[in-house]
Nucleic acid binder design. Structure first.
Lengths: 394, 394
DNA sequence: CTATGCTCTGCAAGCGCTTACGGGGCTCGA
DNA sequence: TCGAGCCCCGTAAGCGCTTGCAGAGCATAG
């Protein structure tokens, strides 16, 4: 198992007879162990019908030769690539990075590899990158991260029949995991309303036509109805469009500040836009939260540093979950392949025999920090002593 | 090429004769085009010795069937997986995310896929994740991102004979791309010295014994010699250890502040540690830069928001470069395989015939912002008007 | 007109595994 | 003691491509 401190054999292909010995193949192992390649294959993969003694002998031979099965060969023979494609806009963004991290965790445990497909932030080189055909025959499943997807892309995806799962948004027909964007946005907006604000701005994101990406719209709608629910008529001037980036938040804030009647509070659709807004506000001489309250969504790694009130979402968890959803579809597919009769009471199976895609909604939580307060006067916060002098053990 | 608006054929495996038609194979294409599979293979891959007419016919047949070659099959037959493994500690960190982005860019252009291997931040699940054997037979090359690597891991890597390139650090025998850590740290420290500081603290990172990861040490040494060069005897009390994370920077700062004679300036080995330090200092009531100057290394995406003076390094560029270095070794390897004679004057070829690993050093640049100033009085900075009212075109 | 050399294409042998299928040995009940 | 049944294991047929080799067709040179 562990190739740690075993001085004999292992890792370094041991005694290199010859200059650069070619990698050991299954036949070498078979020969060394004195069995057939079929038995080696079965033994190493833990299949039944191999006697303990034989299995050990094979294992030993494999270790000694530093044998590891060729991924291509076993994929070709078995039809299973043990690889999942992850399509993501831009991994430089905290949200995606953390998602991928979670995905990777789950997938690794299940013995799957992660093939990364980043497409431009706004899908610049989309055509080439997200051609499902380029994924097909290379991955067993696909996970798409919060990427605006066109109708035709969805169609193409479905045509490939590759199990697919979505994280951060939903599209009918696919399993997915996400937060309740309406609720999160509602909570955020109502928090500001509850503090007494009435001129509440929104920095959202563009709703690109033709794209299936309901997140910005859901948050926007929730913002609007929260306002209306409180008897506040939304002011279109306070409705700004960003692109989830820091700079777009900053620009939107600049616009808001130049208004004749600027807002006293801002709900940003993401923490990163909130950071940008915060920065712009401060540089304009405004005090947060005295002069302006700001709330975001995410609970970004940097939110504590900006003392930003926000609606937290568990990102890494969503990554883990979406990976598990995908793995579910994978084994479901195998199941179908094996037994084609609808006897076992598989719940939630649609008419076509394919399991109804599950969508998991993970909870969000309002995190109160110092960026929000009633209009005109600061919110009371316990003065935080920095680190309580607790020196880390060196 | 584009599977966009072609109503006939394409994408959806066209006329699905049967319920879920199996994906087209090379023989199907061959049959449709009326040629042999060999010709299909050659035509589709752009090999010479295929007449234009035939090539077109094959291309057309392939398009019509939505054919795409099986990665496993072609890998098995050709021995080329067209995949690069990228080993990274934790993609949630800005530096790594950006590196990967750059790598992905270059690699995609070259037709390679990226298989991601994240290992724990400090290599928790290192054993399993970074077992080169698990990479071998799956990837053609490996890129390692700024990960502390053990001697035995290096040995194991070399034993696999998989071309490997390093980003963010160096280890002999491998091509790599990095910044000049000594220089960067020297510039940072000297900047503080030049401002008149004499009590200059350093927040670095642990030098884990047995690991080949020279970055922290190089920066630390440069810090020390910069001080000595200015006639300042380094005070061990001002020398703190972090782990490149925000919180570790915060903790180190807290320690520094509790000192009898605290520093007037801090050089942090990374921007993220600087952010943490900055935050702690401010929460302790200190004004930056009036009471305390802070400088980092990186020019992190958030550095402008923190108004942090720092030594910038081009991260995405390093990603692109390391990918190109790796591709170089790949073609070099092929070259060697083809012509085994040392006739063409391949410069920089070592005695063993393998090309001397190149290491590229990319330049860094001091970015002056508002977090540094002479001790005791603020540095003069032009007052930045927020965004100059330049409203973005909606 | 024949020899020489191209260019283009097909044949067929793998690449290194996985996986029916079948058969030899053993155990156990009758 | 003998057949049924089970556990193991080997045989061999692929998986879907790539590629060395050779041959067919054709043009050019001699």
């Amino acid at each position: 198992m562990t190739s740690e401190a075993s001085p004999s054999g292992g890792v370094a292909t041991s005694s290199d007879d010859g200059a650069s010995r070619v990698l050991a193949g299954i036949t070498d192992v078979a020969a060394l162990a004195g069995v057939s390649t079929a038995t080696v294959s079965r033994a190493l993969r833990g299949l039944p019908n191999v006697s303990t003694k034989t299995r050990e002998r094979v294992q030993q031979a494999a270790d000694q030769l530093g044998y590891v099965a060729s991924a291509s060969a076993s994929s070709l023979a078995s039809g299973r690539t043990r690889t999942i494609g992850v399509v993501t806009p831009y991994i430089g963004r905290w949200f995606f990075a953390l998602l991928i991290d979670g995905i990777q965790e789950s997938l690794r445990e299940a013995g799957y590899g992660v093939l990364l497909y980043t497409i431009g932030e706004h899908g610049e080189d989309r055509g080439r990158a997200f051609d499902p055909d380029s994924l097909r025959k290379r991955v067993e499943g696909i996970i798409i991260l919060s990427v605006p997807v066109t109708r035709s892309e969805i169609a193409a995806l479905e045509a490939t029949h590759i199990p697919t799962a979505l994280a951060g948004f939903t599209a009918s027909g696919f399993p997915s995991v996400r937060i309740d964007d309406s609720e999160a946005a509602g909570v955020a907006t109502k928090h500001l309303i509850g503090l007494g604000h009435t001129r509440i701005a929104h920095i959202g994101a563009k709703d690109e036509v033709g794209l299936r990406f309901p997140v910005p719209q859901a948050r926007h709608q929730a913002y609007l109805s929260a306002l209306r629910g409180a008897g506040i008529e939304p002011d279109p001037e306070l409705d700004r469009i960003g692109d989830f980036s820091i700079t777009s938040g900053a620009e939107a804030m600049a616009e808001l500040l130049s208004l004749a009647d600027p807002p006293t509070a801002v709900f940003a659709g993401s923490d990163e836009m909130a950071f940008g807004a915060l920065d712009t506000a401060r540089k304009a001489g405004l005090h947060v939260p005295e002069d302006l309250s700001i709330i975001g969504i995410d609970d970004h790694e940097f939110a504590p540093l900006f003392d930003l009130t926000t609606v937290a979402q568990p990102v890494r968890l969503q990554g883990r979950l979406v990976a598990e959803l995908l793995l579910e579809s994978l084994i479901a597919r195998d199941q179908v392949a094996q037994v084609a009769d609808p006897d076992s009471d598989t719940d939630g199976v649609a008419a076509n025999g394919r399991p109804q895609p599950r969508t998991i909604v993970v909870p969000t939580k309002l995190i109160l920090r110092g960026s929000t307060a009633p209009p005109g006067r600061p919110r009371q916060l316990p003065t935080r002593t920095p680190n309580e002098g607790r020196a880390p053990t060196l």
